[in-house]
């Protein structure tokens, strides 16, 4: 392998390669996948001069460590964390030069869940159906990182951004998810519909890239039986038999049989990707607009 490569020294709890995903294949059962906090991934790409579609690394809670073989520009964003180069503190949320052979460490998230590492040139593992994203539901794309693997890097596309600081939204202390009711709200009791938007929920520790699971009032069905499988969208609030709403994130299944009580505005999903277990969740009803 050429020196455009990144050796993974510490893979962390769950670090995956992510880009903008592989939309357009839902009819074949292929999830969209892609970075959960897409604006954070786009921002770190911009900071190092990458195209928006370049692949980055998405960490989960405890960061990761990598060693580039050649000198690269990197940027770390998303969940705030300590960044060090050979043990010396470096900037978070800004371009950082990392000499070839130096150790770049992305520390544990101080707040939020997922940090993003962009490297100039992007991670250039072999794409699958037009995307380099790891899809944890169906196993498409590269496997999650493991200690010792080496990732290929592309040629830098352009100069890195000349900025000292850029605005990053802080991870949420309360997650407010705007929802439009339907398509299957008529499968639930009036009490359940009221509870969804009036009662408090918290983020469950069982959340992952497939869905944000919640704990709180159980939502009671108005009718028994099963729904024949139907297409599912990003942000769908599906209610499994345990009555606790699950918000579908990027690796969600393309069809499902549990009723969808409401759908979250996609603009609120990046915050959902950064909500740690125990974060209060409020579903706020909005009307369908013409």
């Amino acid at each position: 392998m050429s020196d455009r490569a990144l050796a993974v020294v510490r893979a962390g709890a769950l670090t995956t390669v992510q880009d903008q995903g592989r939309p357009g294949h839902a009819h074949l059962g292929v999830p969209r996948s892609g970075a959960l906090d897409a604006p954070a991934a786009a921002l770190v790409n911009r900071l190092v001069g990458n195209a928006p579609e370049a692949a980055v690394l998405e960490t989960t809670l405890n960061g990761c460590s990598v060693r580039p073989r050649a000198t690269v520009t990197v940027a770390v964003g998303g969940a705030p964390c300590a960044v060090t180069v050979d043990g010396r503190p470096a900037a978070w949320g800004a371009p950082v030069r990392v000499p070839g052979g130096a150790l770049l460490d992305i520390g544990a998230a101080r707040a939020g869940v997922r940090s993003y590492l962009a490297v100039s040139g992007g991670v250039t593992v072999e794409p699958v159906l037009g995307s380099r994203s790891t899809d944890l539901l169906s196993g498409l794309g590269p496997a999650p990182l493991t200690d010792g693997i080496v990732l290929p890097l592309g040629r830098p596309a352009g100069p890195h951004a000349c900025v000292d600081a850029v605005p990053h939204p802080a991870p949420p202390t309360e997650l407010v998810l705007r929802v439009a009711l339907g398509p299957r709200h008529d499968w639930f009791t009036d009490a359940a519909l009221t509870a969804l938007t009036a009662r408090p929920y918290v983020v469950s520790s069982a959340s992952n890239r497939i869905g944000l699971r919640t704990e709180g009032p159980t939502l009671e069905r108005a009718r028994p039986g099963e729904l024949p499988s139907e297409g599912m969208v990003l942000g769908a609030v599906q209610v499994p038999p345990d009555g606790r709403p699950v918000v579908f994130l990027a690796d969600h299944p393309t069809t499902g049989g549990y009723p969808v009580i409401a759908v979250v505005d996609p603009a609120d999903l990046p915050a959902a990707a950064q909500a740690t277990p125990g974060t209060p969740v409020r579903f706020a009803a909005v009307r369908h607009r013409r």
Binding site: P23, G24, A26, H27, P228, S229, E230, G231, M232, V233, T254, T255
Partner: peptide
């Protein structure tokens, strides 16, 4: 962007 047929529906 996506046309997803299923048992009795099309999304």
């Amino acid at each position: 962007a996506e046309i997803v047929p299923a048992a009795r529906t099309v999304l």
